[in-house]
Design a protein around this nucleic acid. Structure first.
Lengths: 155, 155
DNA sequence: ATAAATTGGTTTGATGTTCAAACTAAATTA
DNA sequence: TAATTTAGTTTGAACATCAAACCAATTTAT
């Protein structure tokens, strides 16, 4: 059981910690630069995350998307307004309940979403590059560990 | 070589992608909440990252820290000013070159840094929980893969 | 049925973060 | 010693976000 003792060396801790932190910064930076150079140069990383949330929850209400992104309703309103002006998002008035507006992507928005998703696919692919099925399982287990740990903290 | 073919399933991609994205959001949120409830409730996550950068580069110059964090010198000046006012950071005038100011943490700042570092240590520990040496190596390899991939993109 | 309370979304005013550009002072180069 | 460069600060503008006030539609209570 010695090797299960989970005593991580100082060097391993430093390496993993720095890697986790740096990797995220790096991804954000590349996303920003890639967008700047693409057809979608009027879009920021923050905006693309809103577009991502709207796609995942297609035709969901403003409040639902706001909760998803942990933004206030007011902030969401303004963000959606600019994305609508830029032509990526459409508001749809709900037929049943005339208070609610549902959110969806325009074709331009869907195009952007797919481009962004492709980039994420590359990231994940590089992450597990050259690994066999068992090794991929190890990675998945690590991510599950981390998610559990974080969920435990927030109860 | 079949298992080296690196054909990730749609489900695996989704899982890993969402995990990588969610985990980061989650960590930021917990950091924010933890700070809010701690003795350091006057500090934001952004500020703690500046404190982190200052510690890693103890007694480095303002310009060096600004480059590290990819902020303009002007932004760094204002951020350092508020952290100085709050008592976490000290400016030191360089004896050799009277133009440069070097940055360092006060005792209060060091205390905060250590608390934050402890949280990161927990995160890394949870990440590799229950894994043996070989499995840890797999994780490290994945992180190196990812760092290499990202470096390649930026040349 | 109608008044009161709730809900979904928008508007408004304030705060915080960031940037680019102008600026000051010190050091270096010509 | 004059011109240029460098380190850092100040200034003014842009943007993201929030909380609170607000409006309109729906639901609940009387």
């Amino acid at each position: 059981m010695a090797e299960e003792k989970n005593n991580i060396s100082k060097a391993d801790f430093r390496f993993m910690n720095d890697a986790l932190v740096d990797v995220y910064d790096h991804i954000m930076r590349i996303e920003e630069e890639t967008l700047r150079k693409s057809t979608f140069r009027d879009i920021s990383v923050k905006e693309i995350h809103l577009i991502h949330a709207i796609t995942l929850h297609d035709h969901k209400t403003s409040t639902e998307v706001a909760n998803e992104l942990r933004l206030t309703k007011g902030t969401l309103t303004t963000n959606v307004k600019t994305l609508e002006r830029k032509g990526y998002v459409k508001r749809i008035n709900d037929e049943q309940d005339h208070r609610v507006t549902r959110l969806t992507l325009t074709n331009k928005g869907k195009l952007l979403y797919r481009a962004h998703d492709a980039f994420h696919r590359q990231i994940v692919k590089s992450f597990i590059k050259g690994m066999d099925g068992n090794e991929v399982k190890v990675i998945k287990r690590a991510l599950i560990n981390l998610e559990d740990f974080l969920s435990d903290i927030t109860q």
